[in-house]
Amino acid sequence: MYIDPHIHMVSRTTDDYQRMALAGCVAITEPAFWAGYDRSSAQGFVDYFGLLTDTEPRRAAQFGIKHHTWLCINPKESEDIGLAREVLAEIPAFLDRPNVLGIGEIGLNKNSRNELVVLDEHIALAKKHNLLILVHTPHLEDKLKGTRLIMDAIISQGVDPGRVLIDHVEEHTVRLVLDRGFWAGMTLYPDTKCTPQRAADIFEMHGTDRMWINSAADWGVSDPLAVPKCRDEMRRRGHLDAVIRKVSFDNPRAFLSQSGRFAIS
């Protein structure tokens, strides 16, 4: 039994839900993200929020998987501040939907000034409504700088870091994130993030408190079964079942339950 706390099912087939259920997935959370193309209006996001709060929970339920979600305009579409503010204004209307856990995945992409402005406004929205935050950290060479800027922005607004998960950490950012009191997510994603082996290494080096693993499977080359593969990697190394369960079930449940909305069944 496991939770995949970061996956973009909008980009996946129904067969993936079936395979995930067979592998033991009981719940997922799906953050709003860049769909691979730029939406031309705020209405495009309203339609997407409808999918995240209505269509996907029903598709997941067919396979006994609980679906939760996070809403935002992602940093890749935040360079246009005017559009971003129109989308931000639409979010409160969706916050009462039962599967909405908070604001996410917000953060930075290229660490630009406009991205930072839109990030600040999302943090303020989360604070105003007392919502959890799920953070996307930038790719590759931009990750270290972006992770620092994001943490500074969150702390400067007085948000409790224990209610924020900073995702896509790797060896050079995990300690920075944990030391400032945030939760940290490791994404098991080919080529650009962590392999199951490196995720297991990071647990061995930094412990398992306030950490989770996810697949972030989406429209890129990615693997919706990455979480069970990491569990298997840990088992092959001889890690205890309780430890494996902690990182793939107990920890995500503990973080997400702070929303008051998260339920397995």
């Binding site: 360079e79 290229k110 630009s112 406009n114």
Partner: peptide, 8 residues
């Protein structure tokens, strides 16, 4: 922060 994102 940089002035403007040059690409995604």
């Amino acid at each position: 922060p940089i002035a403007k994102a040059p690409m995604k």
